Simulated scan of single mutants.
Amino acid sequence: MGKAEQQEQLDRIVRRFADVAPPNWARLVGNWEAYRGPTGELTLNYLTLAVVDGGDRWLYGQVGYDEPLYDLVAELNRMAAADVPDHAWTVLDLEVDQDHTFRVEFGYDPPKRARGIHDEESMGRFETYLDRWVAEHGPRPPAR
């Protein structure tokens, strides 16, 4: 699979993530860890979160599981593995803003959460995400 096909798949992921987001979302945050089980099957350990305009304050929480989104991310991993079988990404970080601009980062180290490591990289940065958002955007959403 070429890079153009992978970019198209990433665009599908962004659209699906936005489709399943809660109303009034301002930013979506996704983190998927990919690893192979004993028989080679792909498993994704994921966090899908949203910063939401709650009117008088910012809210932050988990976006519900969505099988089509999961399948799109799994397919992106398979596409990457088709290009370089021994070096597919193991971690996908994705932030999507309301205007559908997005930032993506791929990691290649062994996934941490899936191995029970809950440090700043694997969990802490998501637990403090709302604090950093409020520090950058203020305690209240702009007036609607």
Results as ranks from 00 to 15, higher is better:
1 M>P: 14
1 M>T: 15
4 A>P: 03
4 A>V: 04
5 E>P: 03
6 Q>V: 07
7 Q>P: 00
7 Q>N: 00
8 E>L: 12
8 E>C: 00
10 L>E: 14
10 L>S: 11
11 D>I: 01
11 D>V: 03
13 I>W: 03
14 V>P: 08
15 R>P: 04
15 R>C: 12
18 A>K: 14
18 A>F: 12
19 D>M: 14
22 P>H: 04
24 N>M: 09
25 W>S: 01
26 A>V: 15
27 R>K: 14
30 G>I: 03
31 N>L: 14
32 W>M: 08
34 A>M: 08
35 Y>D: 05
36 R>Y: 03
36 R>K: 15
36 R>G: 02
37 G>Q: 07
39 T>V: 09
40 G>M: 05
40 G>H: 06
41 E>V: 04
43 T>K: 09
43 T>Q: 08
43 T>C: 04
45 N>C: 09
45 N>E: 13
46 Y>N: 13
48 T>F: 11
48 T>D: 08
49 L>Y: 15
50 A>F: 08
54 G>T: 11
55 G>D: 13
56 D>F: 07
57 R>D: 11
57 R>K: 14
57 R>C: 06
57 R>G: 10
59 L>S: 11
59 L>P: 01
60 Y>Q: 09
60 Y>P: 09
61 G>T: 13
62 Q>F: 14
63 V>A: 15
65 Y>N: 05
65 Y>W: 07
66 D>G: 04
67 E>W: 06
67 E>G: 02
67 E>T: 11
69 L>C: 03
70 Y>P: 00
70 Y>R: 14
70 Y>D: 14
74 A>E: 07
74 A>C: 08
77 N>P: 00
77 N>T: 01
77 N>I: 02
79 M>W: 00
79 M>F: 02
80 A>L: 05
80 A>P: 03
81 A>D: 02
82 A>W: 10
82 A>L: 13
83 D>A: 12
83 D>Y: 02
84 V>K: 15
85 P>N: 04
85 P>C: 02
86 D>Y: 10
88 A>Y: 15
88 A>I: 07
90 T>H: 13
90 T>M: 13
91 V>N: 04
91 V>L: 07
92 L>P: 06
93 D>K: 12
93 D>C: 02
93 D>A: 11
93 D>F: 12
93 D>G: 05
95 E>M: 11
96 V>G: 10
96 V>P: 03
101 T>P: 02
102 F>W: 15
103 R>M: 07
104 V>A: 13
104 V>W: 01
105 E>D: 11
105 E>F: 05
106 F>N: 05
106 F>H: 10
106 F>W: 09
107 G>D: 06
108 Y>T: 07
109 D>F: 08
110 P>H: 00
110 P>Q: 06
111 P>L: 03
111 P>Q: 05
111 P>R: 04
112 K>T: 00
116 G>V: 11
117 I>Y: 07
117 I>G: 00
118 H>N: 14
119 D>T: 06
119 D>A: 06
119 D>V: 05
120 E>P: 01
120 E>S: 12
120 E>L: 13
122 S>D: 01
124 G>T: 02
124 G>A: 00
125 R>V: 02
126 F>C: 09
126 F>D: 12
127 E>S: 02
127 E>A: 05
129 Y>L: 14
129 Y>C: 06
130 L>C: 10
132 R>P: 01
132 R>T: 07
135 A>N: 07
138 G>W: 10
138 G>S: 08
139 P>S: 10
141 P>W: 00
142 P>N: 01
143 A>D: 05
143 A>Q: 09
144 R>N: 05
